[in-house]
Amino acid sequence: MMRALRVLIGLLLLAGAGFGGFVYTSDMLAATQDSGGGRPERGPLQVRTEAAQTMRFAETVEAVGTARARESVMLHPPAAGRVTEVAIDPGARVSEGDVLLRLDDAEARARLTATEATLTQTRAAHDRLQALSRSGSVTEANLEAARADMMRAEAEHALAETALRDRTLTAPFAGVVGFTDVARGELVDTATEVTTLDDLSVIDVAFSVPERYLSRLARGQLVELTSAAWPDRRFIGEISAIDTRVDETTRAIAMRARVPNDDRALTAGMFLRAALVLDERQATAVPERALSVAGDDSYIHIAEAGTARRVSVTTGRMAAGMIEVSGPVQPGDAVIVTNLANVSDGADVEVLAAEQARLEAPSQ
């Protein structure tokens, strides 16, 4: 009996202690809340933005091509003979008519002198007989014979002049000369290869594209070209010719593009990549990393007066880290590009300045 009484008293004491602790804890929490010591509210979400901008987007078809000089020729001597002068500086630019090679011309000059003497003599004889014919002292047959002699002398003189000119090789057009293996004193003929001459002021690029693009091709259409030799440059040309037939084997159509080459950066034989511009337009673009996708919905967030606004967009082409968008987005809008996992429509945001964003960015 006494043992049961002691157990009952112990339980009553434990219950009283528990109730007292509950009351004490409740009072402390109430006091804390009354004193303003509750959990602080979270501030606006810090983000970084980039401005939407207007960009050029182009629809292109790509091909590979080979550069060709606008005019290119292998030069040969116009006649046979011994070389007396070589005026070829490989890689140098020459003008039309510049002398590149001279042959021994002593015999040609002597022949020209002889024909000049004969021509002078026959002209004098013809003029004398023509004067006498007016008085009837010379028959018409004699006058015709003198005229024939004079014309024959004129023809021989013209041939002698041509033969003398053929002792000199000149540039048929302005361009750049290549290497030569011809030396002074060498005997050459009309089959001897002297040097190459290329007009590189304009480059023609030969390439082909699939026939399905034929209806969208036209002379004057823009072509962008790149070369491994100039990785940081883009060369702009236009279609100058389109073939009249489609290749039956490849089902491609050949064409030529003409590219200005004033600084001679391109040369004949170079491998080039061509991007034929089928269509181009100006459109609003935003950074690719600003785009979010949820199901069929593509959207971005724009920071406006400290608030994030979700904007659904339709996307298009991509270029240089930017993507074409259409929707309620204007060039200059502050598009949020960081902290996207935490941004929501209507959220309070604080746009970091560029330098502050760089300092607070996590190290990689």
Rank of each mutant, 00 (worst) to 15 (best):
R3M: 01
L13S: 14
G18P: 02
G18F: 13
V23P: 00
S26A: 14
Q33G: 03
G43M: 07
P44F: 09
P44Q: 10
V47L: 00
V47R: 00
R56Y: 07
T60P: 09
A63K: 00
A67Q: 00
L75M: 01
H76M: 02
E85S: 14
P90E: 05
V99T: 15
V99D: 03
D104A: 11
D104S: 10
D105S: 15
A106Y: 05
A106M: 06
E107M: 14
A110T: 11
A110D: 13
E116K: 12
R123W: 05
A124F: 07
A124D: 12
H126P: 02
S137P: 01
S137F: 12
V138L: 12
E140T: 15
L143P: 05
M151I: 10
A153G: 09
A155Q: 13
L159N: 14
L159Q: 13
T162N: 11
T162W: 10
L164N: 08
T170Q: 12
V182H: 06
V182E: 02
R184C: 06
E186W: 03
A191P: 03
L200K: 10
S201K: 03
I203D: 03
D204K: 10
A228D: 14
P231C: 02
R234K: 14
S240H: 11
T250K: 08
T250L: 08
R251P: 07
I253G: 06
R256P: 01
V259W: 05
V259A: 05
A275E: 15
L276C: 05
L276I: 05
A283W: 01
A294H: 07
G295D: 10
D296P: 03
I300R: 10
A308P: 04
S312D: 12
M318Y: 07
A319V: 13
G321R: 04
M322A: 07
E324T: 06
S326R: 14
A341M: 01
D345C: 01
G346C: 05
A347W: 04
V351E: 11
L359C: 02
E360A: 14
